[in-house]
Amino acid sequence: MIETNNIPVAEKLTSKNFAPDQDVKWCPGCGDYSILKQTQTIFPDLGVKKEDFVFISGIGCSSRFTYYMDTYGMHSIHGRATAIASGLKASRPELSVWVVTGDGDALSIGGNHFIHILRKNFDINILLFNNQIYGLTKGQYSPTSEIGKITKSTPFGSVEQPFNPAELALGARGTFVARTLDRDTKHMQGILKQAYYHKGTSFVEIYQNCPVFNDAAFFLFSDKETKKDNAVFVEHGKPLIFGANDDKGIMLDGYKPKVVKLNENGVSVNDLWIHDEKDRIKANMIAGFQDDPEEHLPRPFGVFYAVDHPTYEDNMKEQINRIMGKKGKPSLNKILSGTKTWEIDR
């Protein structure tokens, strides 16, 4: 990439370019380390100039992320990163803006901004580190904690049902909704790239282990022995297959997803549900797999939904350009005087 006449070809970025000389201070074994590593790994491949990346985060263990990426960044206030990112993107559409947030940050205190940014569809990437707990404040239950959760603030168990972030994002008319997890590094890298390439608000929920306050919450979906039977990785245009020997699939029985054994009772790959990331209704069904415990549906990962829709900043810019083109930019003196003036003379 040539920048200007005299400057030589820009140096090729590597993951090292994104690691600042700051000590990373998450607890040992925290899932956040992996997310940082995968992000630093894919960033050089995105073709964006280093100075054009911006991270905006709220408050929480997860939100410390901003300090650990050697890009521009703002570690802001609890829950408001999405709102700050909206203003930044509206005024500087050319920047690559990334929001890092937690389950408390995005869904509790920042819930209002979260749903609205999805609806407005700024071209921003939101990474929600879901550890189903408030990490930074030392272990209270969060809006994604399962009912009955025993924490410091709920010593006898929480009494409220959790949000399913993917469902919420779809309900808020998100145009890109995906899920991945800290311990599946390759999958995460793939999802992060797809999130970047999607034009519009990309929402990525990342299951993240908090070994200190909520250990092993997602190991079922990442441990070798249990992963294959309990997780399904959806891909656009591919059938929903899972199981220890890729021997199970998901079929649609009317409106009901059903787990079927492949090559039994005459069921073949051709009978399975083929994932279509443009299908909003089916994306909602996938996001809701966990609500049918009797059927033992696996936990879905991957891009559930991705559609093209005009972004807020493009619409805003288009409107400004159209009106500027029609009316022409008035001089400041014209604005100061307005349309109706009168003279007082002596």
Binding site: E51, Y67, Y72, R92, L95
Partner: peptide, 11 residues
């Protein structure tokens, strides 16, 4: 943001 070489974080 966008200024080459001066990347930094504020908060």
């Amino acid at each position: 943001p966008g200024t080459k070489g001066l990347e930094h974080r504020i908060g």
